[in-house]
């Protein structure tokens, strides 16, 4: 049960680990928005995506994120990649008409280069998203993320949204995930020793096996939750009362550097995007490399 390694927090002490989780969450959203800007000129979009990829790889190196994990999770995506290729390349799309042709089958059906770019761009975006979330989740404890969520949700208190209760529920759920995983394993072993087979058998048998796992798991989870709420009350917990806070999120000099850096990148890309949408052809590739990429 402990093979869920994707994006698991790794307790190092890097620059990224020391950042304020609120700041990290904000930067994550900025960068996600930035990678989703699409330009009219294909070479610009792809060039920027490539630049983002290099940036994120640098971020992963700084944060000591395991590349192995990324490859492992990408390996399981080959099916998605083939699926996207088929959809984008072979299904005719009016939007590509008039753009350079890759292969002309007959007068009604052709494959366009633009469809490859589009597909490559989508796959690249998925990889970029993967890298970004990996950097966040492997440098931030889940509990710190809930503190950050709670902080961002604070304004919702004005409309009487139960911000504190939601955050508390979330953090307790996180706290109990390992406990319940252990429990699942224990129940599975106990049921296996009674002859239940979780691996083989037809649909009916599998269903029965799952039921023999789910029911004891639920009963125990409910019992746990009752005891837990007793324990919380016994220690004076009152969701409506004011509480002090042990954990304090601090915005340090590292955060200032990180947000300035991310803000500059976002600002730059946003500027180009606005130019693009107001009719300027952004020939980034040509401006930088003084060569016409040909697309």
């Amino acid at each position: 049960m402990n093979n869920v390694t994707f994006g698991r927090y790794t307790p190092y002490n890097t620059f990224t680990h020391k950042l304020d989780p609120r700041n990290k969450l904000f930067i994550l959203i900025l960068l996600i928005v930035a990678i989703f800007f699409q330009f009219h000129v294909w070479s610009t979009t792809l060039l920027l995506s490539g630049a983002f990829l290099i940036l994120f790889i640098l971020m992963m190196l700084i944060s000591r994120v395991s590349f192995l994990n990324i490859f492992k999770s990408l390996k399981s995506m080959w099916f998605l990649i083939i699926f996207l290729l088929v959809i984008y390349v072979f299904i005719p799309n009016k939007a590509y008409e008039g753009t350079p042709i890759c292969y002309q089958f007959n007068e009604h059906y052709a494959i366009y280069w633009a469809s490859f770019y589009q597909c490559g761009y989508i796959i690249l975006r998925i990889i970029l998203l993967f890298c970004l979330t990996m950097v966040l989740t492997s440098t931030t404890k889940p509990m710190d993320l809930t503190y950050a969520f709670e902080w961002y949700m604070t304004p919702l208190k004005l409309i009487r949204f139960p911000v504190h209760e939601t955050a508390m529920t979330l953090s307790i759920a996180l706290r109990f995930i390992p406990t319940l995983l252990d429990e699942t394993e224990r129940i599975m072993k106990a049921q296996e020793s009674r002859g239940v087979d979780f691996g083989r058998g037809g649909l009916g048998k599998k269903f029965k096996a799952i039921i023999s796992l789910i029911i004891p798991l639920f009963v125990s989870a409910i019992q746990r939750s009752e005891e837990l709420s007793d324990a919380m009350e016994a220690r004076g917990y009152d969701p409506r009362a004011k509480r002090t806070k042990y954990r304090k999120l601090t915005f340090g000099w590292r955060d200032a550097i990180a947000i300035l850096f991310a803000g500059a990148i976002f600002g730059g890309v946003l500027y180009l995007f606005i130019l693009d949408r107001t009719g300027t052809q952004i020939e980034l590739f040509q401006w930088i490399f003084k060569v016409n990429p040909g697309f």
């Binding site: 509990m143 005891e227 324990a231 220690r235 002090t244 042990y246």
Partner: peptide
């Protein structure tokens, strides 16, 4: 009865209340 995410958070839970 372990409410906090870590040992220190758990001891802090009652103090916060």
């Amino acid at each position: 009865q372990f409410i906090g995410a870590t040992v220190e958070d758990d001891i802090a839970f009652g103090l916060e209340n």
